[in-house]
Amino acid sequence: MWTILQHSFTASETVEYPEQQPYLAPRYRGRIVLTRDPDGDERCVACNLCAAACPPDCIALQQGVREDGRWYPEFFRINFSRCIMCGMCEEACPTNAIQLTPDFEMCEYNRDSMVYEKEHLLISGTGKYHDYNFYRVSGLAINGKDKGQAQNEAQPIDVKSLLP
């Protein structure tokens, strides 16, 4: 009885959602987005690792190659009606493209509306990781980044040179 009385004078833990929004940490696992690299180009290289890591298999995509040599997803589809927000896709992503955000408000009356295509997923920012640009590390040459211009790369070898 005393405990109950005590509690009537403590501050309430209950939050009046939705009038009052709770604080969610930036690493909260909510709605998934596809981010862009610092240069503004889409980060996803359609390597398929997120799809492979996904426990409910709710990610489907198809790779394509752009004119400038970059790999990109021709389509990228997440079926959020199946997604369990486990974050395995984010963990698997080698380019920091796929990220989970603190947004969880995704209620729909129609399950079909839970299917997000690339245009719904792709945001114009870098998300949580601001500096990473996969193509500055990768050895693949693309327009604007030739062989030997990636991080820690020497200039291309001249095969015809006899010098040691």
Partner: peptide
């Protein structure tokens, strides 16, 4: 490890 079973046809029907 076949992926995307619940998404590959979701554009047609969920």
């Amino acid at each position: 490890r076949y992926s995307g079973r619940t998404a590959m046809h979701a554009n047609i029907s969920v």
